[in-house]
Write a protein that binds this DNA or RNA. Structure first.
Lengths: 219, 219
DNA sequence: TCAACCGAAATTGTACACAATCAGCTGATC
DNA sequence: GATCAGCTGATTGTGTACAATTTCGGTTGA
């Protein structure tokens, strides 16, 4: 359970990253109480940087903090994930609006088109195995990340990042299982890109919001 | 520059609150570099709880952190405040939707109607002096806070709270200066409440979003 | 049996000492 | 005069000791 020791980075930062990672991949379970001494030993650091990291993660909303009785992993049950998706939908919709209003620069446009093409290539296979899902996942992350970057709004990016860090609301999580569902998602992407390119920001926002809501509801 | 010493609360929490307060009321200026030793002395605590607080505030997005060179107050210039208001508008709109969809319980409804009535009382004076603005501010905070509470969505509440803590985007900041502007805001509130009561959540969201955007744009 | 109480052990909160790193100055070199 | 290495004081990062608080077992008394 050691840290990747990039010696430059302060331990507090490395520890926060490591814990975030473990929450996303489920190594730390919902509601789990974190014992500072044991956790510090396990991570190979003292309690000082660990505690700084814990306070930061609590501020991000990933941990609960109760004075004098420590930190616990926040519970992300099903309905909480639904909530997170609705917030994510609203914020990504907003990002889409900003990107459309501002207009895409050449490199963002190229990235989006590449991601879209990769998605369409997956659809063209008509398959939906692990390999296809992985390729779609990559394309999907690239599409959403690029759009967020194109919005050029750091506060929105920060806010959305917090929501995306919630277990279950991550961009990496793909909730599609059939070729048809993937086809529909890629179709969404294409229409979103078209709306952005024609600077129809109201429509761009609406489409993105619906797209993200759909990810969750179409189970 | 002492802390209010409620001895129960860990110093790290009290320090974070105190610093947040100072950023909101402008005692800490944009871009200011925070010297840990001096700040700790000024607050009457050691560097240990101070640093925990600083990490938390950085995670909230109020401070910038650069490894080995410390924390600085994040810059919230005019256009950043505009950005924050757009995010706030989207999130409060969402809260409004949730509240409408879920329906108001008796106490929320009573609080909202009280807040509305207080706003209308201010409008009835036809004045816009410091006393009126203060009364309107109180009513306004109560209205928005109650609505957020009624949305019953803690993740949304947390996310919105972060945005509201941004200097310039606070609920306490009233950007109205004429009786007519106040009249219009109170009118917004009434229509929002009506939409919620009739469970027209799409409209409730739209109205709230427009209302919050309007706060900022109508200068 | 049960609740309230007490103490010890475990756990969290804080201060402080020291290590690591950075910023600014000095002076040597070209 | 500009540049850069190296020194030095200042600042940040971390480990550790200890204080404060909570938790939990056992004991007492009704």
């Amino acid at each position: 359970m050691d840290l990747p020791d990039r010696a430059l980075r302060p331990r507090a930062i490395a520890v926060a990253d490591a814990l975030r990672e473990r929450m996303l991949d489920g190594a730390l379970r919902d509601g789990e109480k974190l014992n500072e001494t044991r956790l510090a030993d396990a991570l190979g650091v003292s309690r000082t940087p660990l505690r700084a990291a814990l306070h930061a993660l609590a501020a991000e909303g990933l941990l609960e903090y109760a004075p004098n009785r420590g930190f616990t992993v926040r519970d992300f049950s099903t309905e909480l994930i639904d909530e997170a998706f609705e917030i994510r939908a609203a914020l990504e919709g907003l990002a889409c609006r900003f990107a459309a209003r501002r207009g895409l620069d050449a490199s963002s446009r190229a990235s989006l088109e590449t991601a879209l093409a990769q998605g369409e290539a997956v659809v063209a296979t008509g398959q939906c195995g692990p390999a296809e899902l992985e390729r779609y996942r990559t394309a999907n992350v690239a599409f959403h990340e690029t759009l967020l970057h194109a919005a050029q709004n750091r506060q929105l990016a920060d806010t959305l990042r917090l929501v995306l860090n919630r277990p279950g609301a991550s961009l990496r999580r793909i909730v599609a299982f059939t070729p048809d569902q993937i086809r529909q998602r890629v179709d969404d992407h294409r229409r979103i890109l078209e709306a952005i390119l024609s600077q129809d920001y109201g429509r761009a926002e609406l489409l993105m919001r619906d797209h993200v809501s759909g990810i969750r509801t179409a189970r």
